[in-house]
Design a protein around this nucleic acid. Structure first.
Length: 230
DNA sequence: ACTGTCAACCGGGAGA
DNA sequence: TCTCCCGGTTGACAGT
């Protein structure tokens, strides 16, 4: 499976990221505590991988956050510090990636179920998916950028080649053909010349309109071979 | 010391 | 108004 990039340029770049189905239905989830607490950094109580139960931490080892980190993290007198950074365990990352493959967005129920399964807060699962989507998009953008760079390179080369060709053709070009007026026997200016659509020869444009023209034998075309042609 | 990664946050826009 | 998502940013941490 591959997800085509939704670029405005219409490039058909495919990513190895399957499952672009978005099932972000109505989400009535009310756990939005992180924003309201973010300024004073007093999130330590529910922060990171606080073990929900004492028994089975082996499945999801708690990254770099120890249980008593929160004592000195934000609550201490040191001022506004972020709590220690959470590192998701390999198993947590694996399960998150797995469900990301299935769906790039989660419903509230899916999010909560996943959070329970991973012993994370739903907000953490939500944030992980947001960041994961952003990373995917960044990768796609980088791939598009590389593709456009290659396009630019080949088009530049093509442009150079065509310009050289134009220069060569200009160098080969001779003076405009000399056509004598059938009446005065004087050379006609180039603006008074047209090309016969049948034989593509240059002739004088001073004849009567096409509808009133005489028979082809008497037509102004082919009065004589032009002295020069393109 | 420097740099890259990434969880978490912030502000704003969109939809119901 | 509420909730969600997105783009941008911050800051902790790991690797060099």
């Amino acid at each position: 499976m591959g997800a085509t990039s939704p670029s405005a340029s219409g490039l058909e770049l495919t990513m190895a990221v399957p499952g672009l189905s978005s099932s972000s239905g109505s989400e009535g989830f009310g756990c939005n505590n992180s924003n309201s607490n973010s300024n004073n950094n007093v999130r330590v109580d529910l922060d990171m991988n606080q073990p929900a139960s004492g028994g089975e931490e082996e499945e999801f080892p708690m990254g770099s956050v120890e249980e008593d980190e929160e004592e000195r993290g934000g609550g201490g007198g040191g001022g506004p510090h972020r709590p220690k950074k959470l590192r998701l365990s390999k198993e947590q990352s694996r399960l998150l990636e797995e469900s990301f493959r299935l769906n790039h967005t989660l419903t509230t129920k899916q999010k909560e179920a996943l959070a329970v399964k991973l012993k994370l807060r739903p907000r953490q699962v939500e944030v992980w998916f947001q960041n994961r989507r952003a990373r995917t998009k960044l990768k796609q953008t980088e791939q598009e950028c590389e593709y456009l760079k290659r396009c630019f390179g080949s088009l530049t080369e093509e442009n150079r080649r065509l310009q050289r060709e134009v220069e060569e053709l200009r160098a080969m070009r001779v003076a405009p053909p000399t056509v004598l007026s059938p009446h005065t026997r004087q050379p006609l200016p180039a603006s008074a010349l047209i090309m016969c659509p049948r034989c593509e020869r240059i002739t004088a444009a001073t004849g009567p309109p096409a509808a009133a023209r005489p028979t082809p034998a008497a037509s102004p075309f082919h009065p004589r071979r032009p002295s020069a042609a393109f």
